[in-house]
Amino acid sequence: MTVTTITDAQLAPKDYASDQEVRWCPGCGDYAILKAVQKACADMGLVRERTVFVSGIGCAARFPYYMSTYGFHTVHGAPPRSLRASSSRTQSSTSG
């Protein structure tokens, strides 16, 4: 199996944001984390359709909804499923 690395250097951090309204409590640290991850995605040039974000339970787990990538907001224990998703349909950019 040949693993090819595809990157997209054209994207800015805001291009990794979805059009959904971010709903966290005012002052929540999750805002900063979301921004940082979006910036990291841009720095790494991740291809959006080849990227999946996977989260578990809790308000921090709303994270995938705010990314313009593929995403799962699901139960605890999701990472094994996400790995399958990433290996079959996306490149390898899985973040849980």
Partner: peptide, 16 residues
Amino acid sequence: GQAGTPQLEHRIGGLE
């Protein structure tokens, strides 16, 4: 769309 399809990125989750 199936995961990996450009332009069809979406999120699946437990929220309404």
